[in-house]
Every structure is written in structure tokens, then in C-alpha cells.
Design a protein around this nucleic acid. Structure first.
Length: 413
DNA sequence: TCTGGGGTCCTAGGACCC
DNA sequence: TCTGGGGTCCTAGGACCC
């Protein structure tokens, strides 16, 4: 572990969703903009412009609260396709700079720049070059943190915002981290913060004073990781892995929150049908079969339950997914109770279904062909053009509407 | 403050097996 | 009858991230 110190870049796009919307509508520039939905809708802020943030608006805030804080803000629906497109463009720029690039999410990436000094110059110079290149080729601003670990790079990119570059010189990690709030450590949220505060730990420096054993005692495995992070190490989990490693999806899910709660069985089941189709489609696109299917049910009062079932044979078929989900729903829904949200979740993937007897296998193959054809039709004519009504009475199905909020929100930016 | 959607990882208890 | 100890799988829930 005493090899040459690594040089890791963390590139984080500034107010990504807002900036992309500004590319499509330049009149938004310089204004208070909230991305995530329209005024008065049920939902939360996916991203807010720096202008809106001045009024206390931040991501994950309910739209209705944002409206109160900033009545003059412009509310914009999210456009996931636009963000994906821009994200790919950003990836292209990064990849032209270094082959070791890993997109950590739609708007941030890690680069392993170890040993590139002869090509790009010293770390700070290289980061400034990349910073400019991203701006020139995408018209989007980013911030870049540079350090000897992913953790240091990530924390420093956050401190560099907006539109800045920050290098933590090797050996200075502890000094950089010590004065920061424990909340600045990725993975420390509200709950951990509170637990740490109860122990008198407020700053990263306080945390670094405690030894591993004490923290492991208090917080288990997570405490050990925390101890490492307080010292600037990528302690534990995926954070430890090499930059550029491809990781496969572990689960696929879709959920829907109603604009108004409903206790109507037919409406609920047709939503589950639609969600099952969406999950099935994603499974087929990824060439995956799922063994575990899970229903998520959130009632009006926000109490939420999940109920799962593991199949003997993994599936990627809409009908099989829906069949299980419906069983779980009928078994667990308090009949008539108003529901706020429904979700369908698939996990325990197998790359190919273990097939039963030949006849059964043949039947499944034919179904797969039918479904792939339906996927293609939906691509061409929209989500509502094809319905596999098997197991449903005619007219049973809710009209499919495009989900304007089909995008990830953003935490800290 | 009336709380989206899509993910990852972790914990904990019970079933079941050797 | 007074009862071990792992290992693994399954399910439910929760913290956290963007």
C-alpha cells in the first residue's frame, strides 16, 4: 500500500439539470429556475439554479415549499433524455482526456490521472485544462476536485463549487478535512450526523481523533469505514474499487406517485400492470432475468410497506411479473385504503433463465419474441400504443401518460 | 416542509441445513 | 428436551446518494 500516491479527479457538473435546460431555453439564464415539476404539483425539486438557491430552495425540497420560498421562480419539468444526452457528451470529453473514466452518476465522474504528468502536466494544471475543455465542448460548467483518493477528490470538488478547481496536495488530506462538517463526508446523512453529534463529534477532525475500535463498536461496519474516511481513505464498499471498473445493475424498479391518492382497486391494479411492463421491458433490454419481485405500497399517511417473493425460475416476462405483483398486492393491500404510491422492483438477476422442460421453454421463447416486437412498437409509436392485456379485463387499464418526473433528483451539488 | 424516482448497501431475524 | 454453531437464503426495513 506504499506505492506511488494516486491522482484522482472528481468532475461534478454545476447545477446540471438547470444548466441543460438553459441550453435549450437561453431565456432561463440568470433567473431563479426550479427543475422537477410545475407549481403546486406533488413532487420535489430535482435541481435549482444558483439564483433560486439564494432564496433557500434546494434539491429534494417539496415543490410547494420551493414556491413559498421563491414565488417568482420559473418551474420546469425535467427532461431525462436531454440529461442523458448531455451526460454522454461530457463522458466523451472526459474519455478523450483519460481512458480511466467512471461515470458515478449522470452528472459526475471519477478519473484516474495517476502517471499522466508528462502528458498533461502537474495535477492542478491538468485539472484546469480539463475544466476548460468541458466548458468549450459542452457549454456546461463543472467543478473538479483533485486528491489522492476518491473521497478527497469528491469532497474537494464540492468545496470548489461553482465552476472551480481544487487540489488537495498529497500529505495534506487530514489538514484539509479536519475543519469540515461531518456532513461533508459522503455517506453521512441526517441520522449519522445526529448520532455523531450525540457523541460530541461535529467536525471531521473530531472524528479522526477516535480510534477504529471505538467507532466499530458504536456503528459496526459503517464505523470502520467512517474512521478511514475521516483520514481521507476510500474505506470500504465500492469506493475502494479501481476507477473505470464496470459494475452491473443489481436491481431494476419503477414506481408511481398519484397526483391524488386513490383506493380504487382497478386503477391500482392497472398501474401495477403498467409498472410491471416497464420493468419487464428494462429486463429484456438488459438481457436479464429476475428471481425476486417486490411490491411497494405507500398509503396516504406515508406508511410504506414492501412485500417480496422469489420465483423458482427467473423471468423477464411482463405477464409473469404482473402475476406475482398482483398476488402480493391482493394479499397485502388494506382493501379500500387510499394509496399514494405503488412500485414494482426486480432483483436477484440471472443472466439467462434456467429453463424448465423443452415445451415450457419453447412457449417462453415465443412470448419473448412477442414482447420484443411490442417494445419496438412502443419505441416508434409511444408507450400507450401497445398493451398486452392478458389477465386483464378490457378497459381495465389506466391510460399511460408520460411521466414528467421520471428523473433522479440531486442531493448536494 | 406535506414529502419524486431510481438506485446501492447494510442490518436483523427466521428458516433450513449440516 | 433445557438444547451448539456455522453458513446461506429469504424477507423487511432503513440510511443514503444523485
Amino acid at each position: 500500500m506504499n506505492a506511488v500516491a494516486k491522482t484522482i479527479f472528481h468532475v461534478d457538473m454545476d447545477a446540471f439539470f438547470v444548466s441543460v435546460e438553459e441550453l435549450f431555453d437561453p431565456s432561463l439564464k440568470g433567473k431563479a429556475v426550479v427543475v422537477g415539476g410545475q407549481r403546486g404539483e406533488r413532487g420535489v425539486v430535482a435541481a435549482a439554479s444558483y439564483e433560486a438557491r439564494k432564496f433557500g430552495v434546494h434539491s429534494a425540497m417539496p415543490l410547494r415549499t420551493a414556491e413559498k420560498h421563491c414565488p417568482h421562480a420559473i418551474f420546469v419539468n425535467g427532461h431525462p433524455e436531454r440529461y442523458r444526452e448531455c451526460s454522454e457528451k461530457v463522458y466523451g470529453v472526459l474519455n478523450s482526456f483519460s481512458p480511466l473514466v467512471e461515470m458515478a452518476s449522470i452528472d459526475e465522474a471519477y478519473l484516474d490521472m495517476t502517471g499522466t504528468e508528462r502528458l498533461h502536466g502537474p495535477p492542478l494544471r491538468a485539472a484546469q485544462k480539463l475544466h476548460q475543455k468541458v466548458k468549450d465542448q459542452t457549454q456546461l460548467n463543472c467543478s473538479i476536485g483533485v486528491g489522492t483518493s476518491r473521497l478527497i477528490a469528491k469532497v474537494s470538488s464540492a468545496k470548489a463549487k461553482p465552476h472551480g478547481v481544487l487540489w488537495v496536495v498529497p500529505g495534506q488530506e487530514a489538514r484539509f478535512l479536519a475543519p469540515l462538517d461531518v456532513r461533508d463526508i459522503p455517506g453521512v446523512g441526517k441520522v449519522t450526523e445526529k448520532n455523531l453529534q450525540a457523541l460530541g463529534i461535529h467536525r471531521v477532525g473530531d472524528l479522526a481523533k477516535f480510534d477504529d475500535n471505538f467507532l466499530e463498536d458504536k456503528f459496526g461496519k459503517w464505523g470502520l469505514a467512517l474512521s478511514g474516511k475521516a483520514r481521507g481513505f476510500d474505506a470500504g464498499g465500492w469506493f475502494d474499487t479501481e476507477v473505470g471498473g464496470e459494475s452491473e445493475a443489481k436491481s431494476i424498479s419503477h414506481e408511481h406517485t398519484y397526483n391524488e391518492d386513490t383506493g380504487d382497486a382497478q386503477q391500482l391494479e392497472s398501474t401495477l400492470m403498467r409498472l410491471s411492463e416497464m420493468v419487464g421491458r428494462r429486463l429484456r433490454e438488459a438481457g436479464l432475468h429476475a428471481r425476486t419481485l417486490q411490491l411497494k405500497l405507500r398509503y396516504k399517511d406515508f406508511t410504506t410497506i414492501t412485500r417480496a417473493h422469489s420465483l423458482a425460475t427467473a423471468t423477464q416476462l411482463d405477464t409473469e411479473i404482473f402475476e406475482q405483483i398482483r398476488i402480493l398486492f391482493r394479499k397485502n393491500w388494506k382493501a379500500g385504503a387510499a394509496v399514494r404510491l405503488l412500485g414494482v422492483h426486480a432483483a436477484s438477476f440471472e443472466s439467462a433463465a434456467r429453463q424448465g422442460d423443452l415445451l415450457e421453454g419453447d412457449r417462453r421463447e415465443r412470448w419473448k419474441d412477442v414482447l420484443s416486437a411490442a417494445d419496438k412498437l412502443r419505441d416508434r409509436f409511444g408507450e400507450s400504443s401497445v398493451t398486452l392485456a392478458s389477465g386483464l379485463k378490457a378497459g381495465f387499464r389506466e391510460r399511460t401518460h408520460e411521466n414528467p418526473a421520471g428523473l433522479r433528483g440531486k442531493g448536494k451539488e
